[in-house]
Design a protein around this nucleic acid. Structure first.
Length: 207
DNA sequence: CTACCGATTGACT
DNA sequence: GTCAATCGGTAGA
């Protein structure tokens, strides 16, 4: 598959901007079992020290070390016994990242079905841990260079959908705090998005 | 749709 | 040692 790999410069920017622009890109994974992956349809931005929800907001640890490294590398961590994939953004030393929350399966569907143990398309890659299982991503890819274009990378979609998709925003999922800023971005109405697939309806007051 | 609960790891007392 | 966590599967309404 011809797909230009995203450059280091792409990630070397504000995480919210990178998150927004990652929608529609292809996340690809190649193993001896074959190629698989799909279109990114849901992401969340985590904004370094100024973001209390960011794993790096309380300093560097063994777990979050990859976020302190150069942009364009993966930050893979485990939560509730499951793996999640992030792409590191901004300059080295600024620990920010974009969580890849869901992709739309495009290639290697059978392989992903095997890894997930289900044929239900909507359950293959909807959710950060599900997509990691479908793509066989684990701790060994923590710190992996996503711009190298092998094993695990993100590239342009050579055949983007005819109709431009609409980007929706919301608060991030699974967080008890830091809901003020809308740092979750997703393709509106896409069935492979986790949680709400439409933008939240505006409210003046919430109790 | 909602609610519950298993599960692993790393951080902190 | 204890606990909270960027979750997902399943049961039940």
């Amino acid at each position: 598959m011809q797909s230009s790999v995203l450059s280091r410069e792409f990630y070397h920017r504000d995480p919210a901007l990178v998150a927004r622009e990652l929608l529609g890109k292809l996340l690809l994974r190649e193993t001896s079992a074959g190629l698989c992956g799909g279109r990114i349809v849901e992401v969340e931005a985590y904004l370094s020290a100024r973001d209390p929800a960011c794993h790096a907001s309380r300093g560097q640890t063994l777990r979050n070390a990859a976020m302190f490294g150069p942009p364009g590398h993966a930050y893979v961590y485990m939560i509730h016994a499951r793996w999640c994939l992030n792409a590191v953004t901004e300059p080295e030393g600024t620990p920010s990242a974009v969580l890849i929350r869901a992709i739309e399966p495009l290639v290697g569907v059978e392989l992903m079905q095997q890894r997930r143990g289900t044929d239900i398309m909507r359950d293959l890659t909807r959710g950060p841990a599900r997509l990691c299982e479908a793509l066989a991503i684990d701790r060994t890819y923590d710190g992996w260079d996503l711009t190298a274009g092998r094993e695990l990378w993100i590239g342009e979609d050579p055949e983007p959908p005819e109709r431009p998709f609409q980007v929706a925003k919301s608060g991030r999922i699974g967080l008890s705090s830091a809901q003020r800023r809308l740092l979750r971005f997703f393709v509106a109405g896409n069935p492979f998005v986790s949680g709400r697939t439409q933008a939240p309806t505006k409210r003046r007051d919430t109790t």
